[in-house]
Structures are given as C-alpha cells and as structure tokens.
C-alpha cells in the first residue's frame, strides 16, 4: 500500500491519542520507521500490523479501528491536500460513490502501483443503494464501512451501512446503504476538521479543504 495509508493511521492515532500511544503502537507492530512517505509503496503487512497493534494497545477490536480509520480517511485525504482533487469526484453522496472507480483510475496515473478496491453502485431509490465492494485484500470490510460512513458525514448524510453479502461467500462484500440528509436541528457529532460545520446545499463538502495544507 502507498505510504499515505500508513500516514493516515499515524495521523489518526496522534490526533486522538497522542504521540506516546503512536510510539507504543509502532513498537508493538515491530515497525522499523515511524515516518511514511505518501508516494512510497510499503508492504501491506505493515498496515495490517499497525492495525493489529493499535487494536491491542487501544484495547479496541480491529474492525472498530478500521471503521474509525475509514471515516477518518475522508478527512485525512482532504487535509493532505486532496480536498481539491476530491471536489471533482461528485457533488452528491451517491454520485461520489459511483465515481470512486473513475477517481481511483485517474489516481492510478500518478500512483502507478495503486491497486485500489472497486465500488459498484446500484441505485434502489433516492435514499437507498446497493454497494459492491471488490478488494483483492482480505479483512477490510470494516474499512469500506468506515469510508462510506465518513463520506456520508462529508455530505451531511445520516448513513446506515448493512453488510448483506460477504467476501468469503461471493468474492466481494455487498452492502445495503441507506442515506438521508441530516436535518439542521438534528444533533450530530461535531466534525472536528470542518471549518464550517454545515455544508450549504449544493456546495461540494470538500471545498472547505481547498488549500488546506
């Protein structure tokens, strides 16, 4: 995986738990280095080891870590400067999901060794879709759930993701995704990284990260 993934895990741990906990995690993971270059390709095992170590040190099940990381990923990539690029991938939640493969394909011209997962969407109605998650990597179902949830937050959507078919049974995960816009009055978790807590209607949620470095 590209270093940006491990860098994201590092960033999430440090933001939420501090440098000391991150040091414990890399020691536990047996990691030789604690700095990851975004454009460098690292062995997948490093990422799995980091998640395993984080699970142990934080006493949190690995799937929960992956969900949290998936949600954080949307914030992290935006703050890493990709907010700009993400703006072009779609202005609505289902459109963005639908264009993820195209986004990855285009990213592949820069990240030549990128082996991204594939997201195939089938719209059921204007608040429901079926999402297929194809990944050649094992055990990342929870990460996909986190990414979808994180994406929902970015678009001010309340998202419910339900796993309906599993990779081990059919070769890919299939989710039923329900999404409804969050009402302004509805209490929601504060988005720590948003400069503006509520997106204006029609405004791309990633635009707040333009130029964020």
């Amino acid at each position: 995986m590209y270093g940006i993934v491990n860098k994201g895990i590092r960033d999430m741990v440090i933001r939420n738990h501090g440098e000391l906990v991150w040091e414990k995690i890399i020691t536990e993971a047996g990691c030789q280095e604690d700095f990851f270059m975004s454009m460098e390709v690292y062995d997948d095992s490093i990422t799995y080891d980091l998640v395993g170590a984080a699970s142990k040190i934080l006493r949190t099940p690995a799937p929960d870590i992956l969900v949290a990381f998936g949600e954080f990923w949307m914030i992290f990539t935006a703050t890493e400067g990709y907010g700009n690029a993400l703006q072009i991938a779609g202005s609505t939640f289902p459109q963005f999901l639908d264009q993820l493969d195209d986004l990855h394909r285009r990213l592949g011209t820069t990240y030549r060794e990128l082996i991204p997962p594939s997201f195939v969407c089938e719209e059921i109605d204007d608040q429901t879709l079926i999402l297929q998650y194809h990944s050649h990597r094992k055990g990342l179902t929870s990460l996909a759930i986190g990414i979808v949830q994180g994406l929902g937050k970015k678009f001010d959507m309340e998202v419910e993701v339900q796993l309906i078919k599993k990779q081990e049974d059919i070769g890919y995960d299939e989710f039923l995704v329900k999404y409804i816009p969050i009402q302004k009055e509805t209490t929601k978790e504060p988005n720590l990284n948003s400069k503006q807590p509520n997106n204006e209607k029609g405004k791309c949620p990633f635009s707040e990260f333009r130029g964020a470095n």
Binding site: S38, M39, G81, Y82, N84, A85, I88, A89, G90, S91, Q95, Q99, D102, L103, R106, L107, T109, T110, Y111
Partner: peptide, 20 residues
C-alpha cells in the same frame, strides 16, 4: 465533475499528479 470528461481524457489526472 469527473463524469464530464471522456474516459481517455487525462486532463483531470493532472490535478492528482500536481497534488502528489
């Protein structure tokens, strides 16, 4: 948005490359 470009058109890819 991305969907407005033909699949072969690499113009938007430039943004990702620049960001990287």
């Amino acid at each position: 948005s991305l969907s407005d470009f033909a699949a072969y058109d690499s113009s938007p890819d430039f943004l990702f490359s620049m960001q990287a």
